[in-house]
């Protein structure tokens, strides 16, 4: 464990807490893409198949449980909660996310560490996570204005993988035969996808104005 990875995990945890706060405090999920939440639930379920077989550390196990439980809780809440579900922007959240699932799975069959069930699903979860934010970014683009908590949620979600890139650079220089190129390349793509969001987020922060995405 290094400071970059710990900062990344904490940033990821903060993004989840901000999302839960937004939904719980406002009893609304307007501006949140259910499809991105479903993709993230799938990412964690397929990435942590080794949850009960490979014990890394207490921290690792607890964080995996938190990520799985929170992503499922958000999906269930957005689908079932009678008040929250009414605020879901169903007609704006129309990204065909099944294509993202299919593309990630095909790529995982072709490019993986080892052609085994667990490694294919691990690679699938890595590729899917890189693309999972797309429905959310498209929804924000369509809805134009971004409320503070949603903006902070997306910002921290994007920032966490940027910390992981620093972690991989650090590990590359401090550990022999460290090669996580699947996670590195995918993490780079993932972070780049946030580039324009980060730009508009920074502008709104600099001008102390409400965040506006160009329609």
């Amino acid at each position: 464990m290094n400071i970059f990875r710990f900062a990344g995990d904490m940033t990821h945890l903060i993004s989840i807490l901000v999302l839960l706060l937004k939904i719980y405090a406002t009893k609304s999920c307007s501006g949140i893409s259910l499809k991105t939440q479903e993709l993230y639930a799938l990412v964690f379920l397929t990435r942590y198949l080794d949850l009960f077989t490979d014990f890394i550390s207490v921290y690792n196990t607890i964080m995996k449980l938190v990520f799985i439980a929170s992503s499922l809780a958000v999906v269930c809440c957005m689908r079932m909660h009678r008040v929250v579900r009414r605020s879901y922007d169903k007609d704006l959240d129309t990204f065909r996310h099944y294509f993202l699932i299919l593309a990630s799975f095909v790529l995982a069959l072709l490019v993986n560490e080892k052609f085994t069930f667990q490694e294919i699903f691990w690679a699938f979860s890595i590729y899917l996570e890189a693309l999972a934010i797309l429905p959310q970014l498209v929804l924000l683009q369509r809805s134009g204005n971004v409320d503070n908590l949603t903006g902070q949620y997306v910002f921290f979600l994007g920032a966490y993988r940027a910390f992981y890139i620093l972690n991989w650079i650090y590990r590359y220089f401090t550990e022999q035969h460290f090669s996580r190129w699947i996670a590195c390349v995918s993490g780079l793509v993932q972070t780049v996808l946030y580039a324009d969001f980060f730009y508009y987020y920074f502008i709104s922060w600099k001008n102390n104005a409400k965040m506006q995405l160009p329609a």
């Binding site: 990875r5 995990d9 990435r47 080794d50 490979d54 890394i56 690792n60 560490e113 691990w122 996580r180």
Partner: peptide
């Protein structure tokens, strides 16, 4: 070591 757990990250 090759058998080290490749996926020690979240």
């Amino acid at each position: 070591s090759p058998e080290e757990n490749l996926h020690d990250e979240l």
